[in-house]
Write a protein that binds this DNA or RNA. Sequence first.
DNA 1: CGATAAACGAGACGGTACGTCGCGTCTTCTG
DNA 2: CAGAAGACGCGACGTACCGTCTCGTTTATCG
Lengths: 201, 201, 201, 201
Amino acid sequence: MTTALPSLPLGRPRDLTRDAVILEATLDVLAETGYEGMTVEMVATRARAGKATLYRRWPSKAHLVVAAIASLSDSNLTLSDVPDTGSLRTDLVALKHATDNPNITLKMQILGGLVASLQSDQQLADRVKDDLIRPRSTMMRGLLARAVARGEIDPDRDLDALATLMPAMTFYRCVVLNEPVTVESQECLVEELLLPAAGVR
Amino acid sequence: MTTALPSLPLGRPRDLTRDAVILEATLDVLAETGYEGMTVEMVATRARAGKATLYRRWPSKAHLVVAAIASLSDSNLTLSDVPDTGSLRTDLVALKHATDNPNITLKMQILGGLVASLQSDQQLADRVKDDLIRPRSTMMRGLLARAVARGEIDPDRDLDALATLMPAMTFYRCVVLNEPVTVESQECLVEELLLPAAGVR
Amino acid sequence: MTTALPSLPLGRPRDLTRDAVILEATLDVLAETGYEGMTVEMVATRARAGKATLYRRWPSKAHLVVAAIASLSDSNLTLSDVPDTGSLRTDLVALKHATDNPNITLKMQILGGLVASLQSDQQLADRVKDDLIRPRSTMMRGLLARAVARGEIDPDRDLDALATLMPAMTFYRCVVLNEPVTVESQECLVEELLLPAAGVR
Amino acid sequence: MTTALPSLPLGRPRDLTRDAVILEATLDVLAETGYEGMTVEMVATRARAGKATLYRRWPSKAHLVVAAIASLSDSNLTLSDVPDTGSLRTDLVALKHATDNPNITLKMQILGGLVASLQSDQQLADRVKDDLIRPRSTMMRGLLARAVARGEIDPDRDLDALATLMPAMTFYRCVVLNEPVTVESQECLVEELLLPAAGVR
DNA sequence: CGATAAACGAGACGGTACGTCGCGTCTTCTG
DNA sequence: CAGAAGACGCGACGTACCGTCTCGTTTATCG
């Protein structure tokens, strides 16, 4: 009598290397055609994969795209990647440098293409929040918490609102105004909106 | 000898009353099904119109929808609709009351459904900016200019950034976070972000 | 006490010269594009007329086309146009020469385009029979009756069948086999089918 | 070392059983509504198929309909289905019995609906000739050749013209005169036209 | 001579079918 | 069984044409 093994799956195992190839192909096509122009078939062809291979991994075009932008490098940044530099302003400068701005622009535009589906697909909405929104939000909350601890920010301020300010402005800029994110545009947000609203200096 | 008339157009003129009927039908269908669920045929049927009548006026589903939300009453608000109450805070309260919040939520979600198309259709993007973004933006700039004139706001502040804050946060809230706009949520934006960032009080 | 006048109609009278212009335009467009390619709008444009002017005269595209081919010259041939030459064969030669073969080909092809509508429009079917089929048929019956009178044809033969032979073969040739009517093709029909079937010589 | 296989095609193969289902649905709809009343969507719905599945097989409504009537049983009759009965007259009687007259009427009317498209679509015209006209024509030529061999028909006669007589008269009867094909009508054609024209008896 | 009524050119309108395209699933063969 | 390839059901899109209608304009007769 043996312990029930975790039901080792039969048959040919998933080829895990396909995931990265597919996600990269997705990003390529997205960059070339935008979310609406992108076709699952285009991605499959570019990745030399069958459509079923894609749908075995992600349940819809939207999920695939979420996974693709979640795989972008700076999605994995955590608070520990931004060293405590002693002040909120310099922390934000450090964050700014750790962030790949062209990618941010693309990411926001693609996210813009997705939001139509968010309204009707709760599972997708959760995925977006968990994989795209929360990581950045958590990190920003961390920076703000540091600033509160230092005494730079009044602890009564609404930190959630403050933490949402940067992504909301960036998203709006990329998606509605259709203007790219630049070092200057980010600096302006920090100096003109975030720091004043936080009551720093 | 007479002045040259502006070349009176031949043939049966457009029935301008159809425009309103069609736009209303569009808003009805949008409210019931959302942007993705809406069908041009649904709208045509509801408006007792042929599809050609719609496509004669607007070149695509997206353009039709932009026209529909642009026709919503509070899209036409101008600075003169918000009386000068003597302070930025009270002006913003007046604005808040002049705005239909449930409509705002719907409007933002519909706009969310559209942004995917903005990336590939420059003409549509222009329409959105001209008909949806600029009017509100202009009004908010007017309120801020009043405040500068009163001495409430330092004239060196970036008024564009400040004017963008509210719509950006509202759009992000409705479309990405999927939370409705309420009186409280708007008050919070004003008190926690806009007024502090503007340096008022 | 006055004689009842034929109630002279009020308003602007029909411009009868438009009829001919429209029918000619119809034939032009038909010759260029065939029945299916022809559009009522094309005809109206070519005739510098409004569509209503066409529909005031003929109740549908099909009726217009019937009128157009009925207006072709050799539609008005009657028995008196074919002199009694003394034998059926020579009578048929005379008929052949009185007939415009290129027009016949076009006429048959256009008639081919119409037959789809004949199934669902009895009024149209009547028009075709009265204006296109019966005149030719009557003439051919006349030629055959002459031949019977001369003793060339046994009076017990089915003259209807014989009279139908030529148009049926011609129609089939033009419409299904897509081959033009020529002097030779018509001669072949007469010598190989009609005269033998009639028992002449 | 092996012989090069005929490069077995990749991917899911066409489901050949769908063809028959679709063609049958086409015939059903045609019988109910006629060619003009038939809609590709109706056929797709009836066959529980998507429109794309139809258009993958046939490039237009007209091509679909040609395929459907070509699939009718008596389209596949060949000379060997009509036994040599010893005389042309009795051979034709045998042929008449091997033919489904109600179907013939329907077939001709449907073909009538198609001919409008033949003028503008050469590929379709070829299909009609190859799949609908030639098979019958070939068989009739075979019967006539038998009769020549027997000495019933003078070998100098134009057998093509004779072979065309029956289908042309039948087509004209169904499509222009709008009268159904009956046993009597066919007998009349044979006795009054075909046999006399062929010089039999 | 002005009023009236219908024809006319132009083109918008309601309706309906077409043929295309994309999504997500299913079905074959190959490794 | 996974994977490549691509057919399949479904359903929306935007286009085209038909036959009707509604403008402003023209051309007759009537009062």
